[in-house]
Nucleic acid binder design. Sequence first.
DNA 1: TCCACGCCTGCATT
DNA 2: AAATGCAGGCGTG
Length: 376
Amino acid sequence: MTVDLIWKKFPVKQVEVKLSKVLRCGQTFRWKNVNDIWSYTTENKIILLKQDEEYIHYSWIAAEHMQTQSKINCHFDKETLDFIKDYFNLPIKLETLYEEWIEKDGLFKISQQKSAFSKFTGIRILRQEPWETLISFICSSNNNVKRISKMCDNICTEFGKYINEYNGIKYYSFPTAVDLSSSPKVESRLRDLGFGYRAKYIYQTALKFTSDEFPDITLKNLYQLRQENYETAHDFLLQLTGVGPKVADCICLMALDKHDIVPVDTHVYQIAIRDYKFKGKKDLKTMNKKTYHDIRLFFKEIFGDFAGWAQSVLFTSDLSDLNNGVNKIQNTEINIDHTSVKQEQDSIVIERKRGILLDPSSQEQDSDKKVKYEMK
DNA sequence: TCCACGCCTGCATT
DNA sequence: AAATGCAGGCGTG
């Protein structure tokens, strides 16, 4: 089936959104990049995006079963644009926030080296669908971006609804709670798909959303948390299997409009000690409840109402472990001849690499990596 | 209440 | 080349 894509566009500066960063900095795991076109499935269509200096271009492919009439076309155009504006939190102006952060950053930072905020522009927090965010972040424990992406891909292919095909890739929607609790076999199937101990967490969480035993745990109430305060949202999420304080905070920040929440892991803890004036043991491996709380409030006091957003920039700029899948690919390329880069014809990985090569600020990182590697 | 431990897989190191 | 270590958050006892 061949489709003629019709592209529309709207103006956005790259300092407001930089797709190549935002879509692979560890907050979303389901976007694919094929020939510099980003793609993602919703319930009824595949959404396609590409970005140049001044514009984001968007297009869509309706689900296979839907007929394409001019009326639907027009509706889908609007729906897609609305989705993009909402998903990327576009009403929130990043440039102004960055100015505030740079100012505050200077006051608290230990060294006066160039602020991460002037180097890594266009990184913003998405406003993602709460159910997908919940399941994705249950997958994130003890895990890396590459593997989480693969797991999300697997769960859609196995339990989602077929949407359509584009560029030789089949696209599926993200499975619902009903899809994931339909049979106890779900858990063992997820295990087979490489979910490990998270298979049980996902199945049990899905069950809580569909079973009468837990009348308060519903999709509607999950969505309602966007209107509730942080404590309410956090406590609700902790009832779910596989959701602890860190995962709950990720969901609060990335799906539930809690812009001031900083999810704390040991990496964030290290940033607090190394770059800011947080006093704590440098060798702390396991974090207790108090430390977690203290670090979260520490960053909130520095950056204020959008502390979670600010933290995501610091985190992304501190690339050493983050995106390790992507970085590993770069190292492989630099060091070994082409024949060695064969086995994984994984389109996601391959295309990520492409995106990086075309992204000017990432090229700086490329050269950094190269230097580090040669010095070894 | 706090803590140590096990859980799963993929990748890097030895 | 097989064995080991690491990543690093949640649940359990």
